[in-house]
Amino acid sequence: IINNLKLIREKKKISQSELAALLEVSRQTINGIEKNKYNPSLQLALKIAYYLNTPLEDIFQW
């Protein structure tokens, strides 16, 4: 999986903590996703895309 979450999140000036709060997950979860240590569920990936107002395929590429 190619993961552009960190790049997109930083472009939008959103911290890991802010995104985690919006998604109701821990900051460690966001960190793990960004470091490719954790693959989000489809539901979480869709929520990330929604809150970042970015197409899912721009954030994650399988």
Results as ranks from 00 to 15, higher is better:
residue 19 L to W: 03
residue 36 N to P: 02
residue 10 E to V: 11
residue 30 I to F: 03
residue 1 I to H: 11
residue 28 Q to D: 15
residue 33 I to E: 00
residue 34 E to Q: 02
residue 50 Y to P: 00
residue 7 L to M: 13
residue 62 W to P: 08
residue 23 L to R: 01
residue 53 N to G: 11
residue 24 E to Q: 14
residue 26 S to D: 13
residue 7 L to E: 14
residue 22 L to V: 12
residue 15 S to Y: 07
residue 7 L to I: 14
residue 24 E to C: 15
residue 34 E to R: 01
residue 33 I to K: 02
residue 36 N to Y: 09
residue 6 K to F: 06
residue 62 W to E: 07
residue 10 E to D: 09
residue 47 K to Y: 04
residue 61 Q to R: 10
residue 8 I to M: 07
residue 59 I to R: 00
residue 2 I to H: 13
residue 45 A to S: 06
residue 23 L to H: 00
residue 3 N to C: 08
residue 52 L to D: 00
residue 38 Y to W: 13
residue 17 S to W: 12
residue 1 I to K: 10
residue 10 E to T: 13
residue 37 K to L: 15
residue 19 L to T: 00
residue 25 V to C: 07
residue 48 I to W: 03
residue 44 L to D: 03
residue 48 I to V: 05
residue 3 N to G: 03
residue 11 K to W: 08
residue 57 E to N: 11
residue 52 L to F: 06
residue 8 I to C: 07
residue 46 L to N: 08
residue 7 L to G: 12
residue 7 L to F: 13
residue 40 P to W: 04
residue 6 K to M: 08
residue 18 E to G: 09
residue 54 T to K: 04
residue 23 L to Q: 00
residue 54 T to Q: 05
residue 59 I to A: 01
residue 20 A to M: 04
residue 37 K to Y: 15
residue 12 K to P: 00
residue 56 L to K: 03
residue 25 V to A: 03
residue 3 N to S: 06
residue 3 N to T: 05
residue 14 I to K: 05
residue 49 A to C: 06
residue 39 N to C: 15
residue 43 Q to M: 13
residue 20 A to E: 01
residue 19 L to C: 04
residue 39 N to D: 08
residue 1 I to E: 07
residue 22 L to M: 14
residue 3 N to W: 03
residue 29 T to K: 08
residue 15 S to N: 06
residue 60 F to G: 00
residue 45 A to Y: 03
residue 48 I to F: 04
residue 45 A to M: 15
residue 4 N to F: 08
residue 52 L to P: 00
residue 55 P to L: 05
residue 36 N to C: 11
residue 32 G to F: 13
residue 17 S to M: 12
residue 9 R to I: 03
residue 8 I to H: 07
residue 33 I to D: 01
residue 30 I to Y: 06
residue 35 K to I: 12
residue 11 K to E: 12
residue 60 F to R: 00
residue 23 L to A: 11
residue 55 P to E: 06
residue 8 I to G: 02
residue 5 L to S: 02
residue 35 K to M: 15
residue 52 L to I: 03
residue 30 I to L: 13
residue 16 Q to R: 08
residue 38 Y to D: 05
residue 25 V to E: 05
residue 42 L to H: 08
residue 44 L to C: 05
residue 17 S to P: 06
residue 52 L to T: 04
residue 54 T to C: 08
residue 58 D to G: 04
residue 37 K to H: 14
residue 18 E to V: 10
residue 62 W to N: 07
residue 52 L to C: 03
residue 8 I to S: 04
residue 16 Q to E: 06
residue 7 L to T: 14
residue 35 K to G: 11
residue 18 E to L: 07
residue 16 Q to D: 04
residue 21 A to W: 07
residue 34 E to M: 03
residue 15 S to E: 05
residue 21 A to F: 10
residue 39 N to S: 14
residue 37 K to P: 03
residue 48 I to N: 00
residue 21 A to N: 12
residue 10 E to H: 09
